[in-house]
Design a protein around this nucleic acid. Structure first.
Lengths: 331, 331
DNA sequence: TTGTATGCGTTATCAA
DNA sequence: TTGATAACGCATACAA
């Protein structure tokens, strides 16, 4: 690999001059500029990024820490984040904690130790005090990590409200909700809060099933079967994500209940992937692209030591497919 | 951020000694070792990775270049690759070319320029001679890039054979196949070859629809509708991937054809995501995890300048769901 | 307009 | 068993 010095020698100038040409700094005569470019081309020279990183004490690397990528929501989120960051000139180091606190801690150690300039986290596990150590700029997505870390989320309360209200308006009364474990500090809990409030306002009894994050689809199916056993009168289910909704639809099918005739179903997330695969699923759509966009913007502010809010809420909307209503919806 | 020198000062030894303790090299008295560890702890010292990279001329970074992550196959592949690489002590830089040659070239420039120690590529665009420049170790997955780059793929011919043969055995005769553009040098073309050979052997007429990679789901649906218009007698479709299969199923439904009663359907890929979402889909399962594993193993060999084969073929199997046969399959 | 010398944080060589 | 020093490749302050 040729280095600055080789170019300098070939162009018969000093390293400094080459560096200047490279970074377009200071005064330079057109003649030398051309000489240097010529030499760089001859040698197929490319600046050594690592050396630059050492000098600038910056890596231009952003770490992304997500619980999983198997869930389409996080898959799409990670994709969008990566795209946005790339456009801003950053490279991305991705870590999937797989909902494993140990694995998350490992990744974090790896990333923190001066490898990344900033961090975007969407992991569940809290208590990671290391986050705000070392002045490392951090932004959280959809997760509350820490007091002084800005959180980007969509309006989960509004999403839960929209979904539940929509079901209530369909005239059904036995509406069940599935959600994550209640001991987790995630904004997604507000979907449940909204669900319960809407239910109570309508004089209905809220019933929430809590599902652990790291259980297999098979185990989930078993829990969903239990819903129908324990609540045979169930008329509608508001699932906390689309994959669960689809699993529920299958389980319902097995048990002889057709959606939406015998069971109304509303999911959550509205990823492109699911909407391509199952466009008829009624679901609350999170603005994933905008969330990623905003996360990157806020991270930039942090990187430039600008002040930021502590929370950002993005609007959601209800995608009315066919699973949430017995009435024929307009096409 | 504390550096080696700070630790040295606090422990009252030289930088060299601290470095020795850090890397367990050379002779050291127990007393100094403990002194140094104590100092490192005091300062919460972590070695500067970038400085190490500069000295060693190695980044421990592997680039992954994939055409898209929206397709579950590549999504799962990228996830598995990342997991395997992480376990081997590598960090991963991911680039999604989005099937855009320009974007791929950009990513490549970024990655090649001495930022990554190796590359795993699964992109479509060939003619990228830069790949084998600079001795950079490269491994290709599911794509033929270049003579001297090892290719990891599953047995696409066998997969196409399994799918087509299975459909032929169902007694149907009008079997249509969808595949990517024929001018692309991908192993996936062998699915088509196998399809055509099996059809001809059975005295049936092969019909293949070619779909561009970067067209929208909506456009794809239109093409699929055309299949039913142009071939009203179609009894079965062997799609080149699962998402297409699912889109076809939807289009068929719209047109009043039920799967499998009025149309047999076999997909390709068998990702966990799709099998969770739609377990009844009959499909050819690619061993994604094993492919990732092997890719990383071969890359390691290349990194250590060991010889490698030029091609590696992994076995596939047919997942018999319910969409590929009118007969009731055993549960 | 261009060049010299120094430092970024680490590791290795050689000497003590 | 330990320490001084050079080197990795680049970019800047300062000098010319």
């Amino acid at each position: 690999m040729p280095k600055l010095e080789d170019v300098a020698k070939l162009a018969q100038v000093s390293k400094t001059t080459v560096s200047r040409v490279l970074n377009r700094r200071g005064y330079l005569s057109q003649a030398t500029i051309e000489k240097v470019y010529w030499a760089m081309e001859q040698l197929d020279y490319h600046p050594n990024v690592v050396a630059r990183q050492l000098y600038n004490n910056k890596t231009n690397l952003i770490g992304i820490l997500l619980p999983t990528v198997a869930d389409p929501f996080f898959g799409e989120l990670s994709f969008e984040l990566e795209r946005q960051l790339y456009e801003q000139g950053f490279k991305v180091l991705i870590g999937n904690s797989m909902n494993d606190p140990q694995k998350e801690a490992n990744y974090l150690d790896q990333l923190l130790i001066k490898q990344v300039d900033g961090l975007i986290v969407g992991t569940h596990n809290q208590g990671l005090k290391q986050y705000h150590r070392q002045q490392l700029p951090v932004v959280a997505i959809d997760r509350i990590v820490n007091e002084d870390i800005p959180v980007i989320a969509s309006d989960n309360y509004r999403g839960g409200w929209l979904a539940t209200e929509y079901l209530v308006q369909q005239g059904v009364t036995h509406i069940i909700h599935t959600n994550g474990p209640h001991d987790l500090a995630t904004p997604a809990k507000q979907r449940r809060t909204a669900y319960e409030e809407v239910m109570q306002k309508a004089n209905l009894t809220p019933v929430t099933y809590e599902l652990d994050f790291n259980i297999s689809p098979t185990q989930k199916q078993q829990i969903f079967r239990r819903i129908f056993v324990e609540h045979p009168k169930v008329e509608a289910i508001f699932a906390s994500n689309d994959t669960d909704a689809i699993l529920i639809q299958q389980v319902a099918g097995e048990l002889g209940r057709k959606v939406p005739a015998d069971l109304l179903l509303v999911g959550y997330d509205g990823t492109k992937m699911i909407r391509n695969l199952d466009p008829q699923l009624t679901t609350v759509v999170q603005p994933i692209e905008k969330m990623a966009q905003l996360a990157v913007k806020i991270l930039q502010q942090r990187l430039h030591k600008q002040a930021t809010e502590t929370q950002y809420l993005l609007p959601v909307k209800l995608h009315q497919g066919q699973t949430g209503s017995k009435l024929k919806t307009r096409d």
